[in-house]
Design a protein around this nucleic acid. Sequence first.
DNA 1: GGGTGTCTCAAACGTATGTTTCAAACAGAC
DNA 2: GTCTGTTTGAAACATACGTTTGAGACACCC
Lengths: 224, 224
Amino acid sequence: MAQSDTVDRILDAAEELFADRGFSETSLRMITSKAKVNLAAVNYHFGSKNALIHAVFARFLTPFSATLENAFNDLEERCDGHPPTLNQTLWALTESAVRMPQRNENGISIFMRLLGLAYTQSQGHLRKFLEQEYSQPFSRFMRLLKEATPQLSAVDRYWRIQFMLGATAFTMSSSDALRDILQNKLGVETTVQEIAARLVPFLAAGMQAQDTVLMPSLSEAPVA
Amino acid sequence: MAQSDTVDRILDAAEELFADRGFSETSLRMITSKAKVNLAAVNYHFGSKNALIHAVFARFLTPFSATLENAFNDLEERCDGHPPTLNQTLWALTESAVRMPQRNENGISIFMRLLGLAYTQSQGHLRKFLEQEYSQPFSRFMRLLKEATPQLSAVDRYWRIQFMLGATAFTMSSSDALRDILQNKLGVETTVQEIAARLVPFLAAGMQAQDTVLMPSLSEAPVA
DNA sequence: GGGTGTCTCAAACGTATGTTTCAAACAGAC
DNA sequence: GTCTGTTTGAAACATACGTTTGAGACACCC
């Protein structure tokens, strides 16, 4: 077995278990027994549980951020001069995610769920790791969003980006939806591609909604 | 101290700590020491940590679901006959949440964050508890959504509701956003009311977006 | 074939967790 | 005041966790 497929077995098992149950709720003993590997192997190969979490993310994110850079390059070149539209930007991101080579048929949904958890579970170390390692493609995406929605105020744009992230990460990370996808419970169509095809128009419409209005009746209501 | 403000002190501390750090990451010892209460008090008054979690939710959700029922009653009465619009339905929900009497000035944001966590952290027992206890107002909200968007296919509607839930729960559960709200980092305006005022138009626009389209270029792309 | 570095394994370590125990303190009723 | 049921307190319990250890297995190079 050459120099150790132990590492990959651990990463595979960890990825799946983390996506299923979250980080704190997944113990090293679960991971190593699912991976059919000795408990000490994790600390030997990765150093710590936190470092294992980082490795799980890096294995997907590093090639993904390269793919994404290329997609953005292509897009900006095609547009030569004027900034890409919101739809173009969102599609560039979506296609990059969807077309990534995957280890198995559920690769994306698992990873989307992990990304959602990363944002949601307040694991400080993970946050820090992701910000350090992948700030570049993230900032670039933000810049494209900004140029594609010049009509929005900075505050509006900030919150609407939060909403987009939320709809995306949450949908992909909802264990119910994940289970539906995996088991095809919904019947008709449940590939990640098709969810994305529904999500992008939703996001674009929300992002370009008419200006924020005051709450209709709350103005004259007791605000506690 | 009559028959025990210990219970309330525990609930207050638990609510805040859970919102800050999640459920698994918050130990009973953190809670009891923040509440200045003996460790055994939790198990004495609530029975178990899980039961404490349920109690934290019930303290807010029970009055809230009553308020919500009233809001829906008012709304349907006002509309007498034809179904309420999407905007009316969303505002009814939002106002009910925002106008709930609160224990302190951050009551809503804390509780929104808890709701997000409930959806996101796969705590089976919590899911089961919430479904059992509060299925009625939830189903009613779903029915109203359905009647307000008759133009959508069932599948489209299903996914768009997922997206709405996602944008909402995720935004409310993002610890960064919460911190922004609490510390007013963004400057201008960051109350939950104002976030809601930005969120509802986003959701309504997304919900009513033009029909889902195929991915522009993925059709001729290798789908891996 | 002896030596070297890499990897695996079973066992143990220290610590933190949720929960339990049981005696002491307290309240209100008689 | 004494009794009774309820609530607190300090300590211990059993268990699970992440991590470390040290001996053994294995492959490779000289």
